[in-house]
Simulated assay, not measured.
Amino acid sequence: MRLYRLSHDSLRFPAPASAFHEPNGLLAFGGDLSPERLLMAYQSGIFPWYSPGDAILWWSPDPRAVLYPQEFHISRSLKRFSRHCPYRISLNQAFPEVLAMCADRGTQGTWIGPDVAQAYNRLHTLGYAHSVEAWDGDELVGGMYGVAQGALFCGESMFSRRDNASKIALLTFCRFFRQQGGKLIDCQVLNSHTASLGARDIPRRDFLALLSQLLPLTLAPDCWQPQTLSAVTLNSDLNHCE
């Protein structure tokens, strides 16, 4: 099996089914991070992920990690914390700052290099990439960003500088997203953190089938306008306590 090289003259991607089994989901390399190519990738169930300075790598893993908003798992400790939560949660009020803080991982390293930051800031300006922010007073203490495609939100990265800040941001977003007509959050690859919040693996073929159904759907008007989101309310549909 040979790795597919993308042409700068075409936005065409190979079929996700042709991705490598090891490393899981590696599909292609090259191309660029233009808005057109990035959007084509997300619409095809593909995303970029590579180290700064390396060639752009494109992935479509099998299985695929997803989170249904109504399945967000609220631990007992998070439920207790949410009763006296000090954070204000907002949408699209500090996208560049959220992206920068997601990239700032100290000695752990990051895949969010300057070219990636520029590309996603451009997607945000065009209205496709969005951020959720958690504030403690005027200080940004947690958040996440991703790309919206129909009734699907493709989560890219999250960060937390205070206890439970990113969890409360995601919990609040799940409730808001579902109210606006959102159906699914793409988590890409399952890890212990996202699994603890309710994400689970599904076969890639099922994800691609869902993708084709969700892309044509539209959310509520003005859904992505900068705004303060409602305070966390633990409704029965978001109350999976352990």
Rank of each mutant, 00 (worst) to 15 (best):
M1A: 14
M1E: 08
Y4Q: 11
S7C: 11
A19F: 03
F20E: 13
L27M: 07
S34C: 09
E36K: 11
P48L: 08
S51Y: 04
S60I: 01
P61I: 01
P61A: 09
P61N: 05
P63C: 09
R64Y: 05
Y68M: 09
E71P: 00
I74C: 15
R76P: 12
R80L: 13
S82D: 00
L91D: 03
Q93C: 10
A94I: 03
A100E: 12
T110H: 12
T110W: 11
H124Y: 05
T125C: 13
T125S: 15
G127P: 05
Y128S: 10
H130T: 06
D136I: 00
E139F: 09
A151K: 12
G155H: 02
S160M: 04
A165L: 01
L171K: 05
F173P: 01
C174A: 13
F176Q: 08
F176V: 07
F177I: 06
R178K: 14
Q188T: 02
V189T: 13
S192G: 12
S192L: 10
A195R: 13
G198Q: 10
A199G: 05
P203N: 05
L210A: 03
L210I: 00
L211F: 00
S212T: 07
L217Q: 15
L219H: 06
P221F: 08
D222E: 10
C223V: 07
W224Q: 00
W224H: 02
Q227N: 01
T228Q: 14
L234A: 09
E242S: 09
E242R: 11
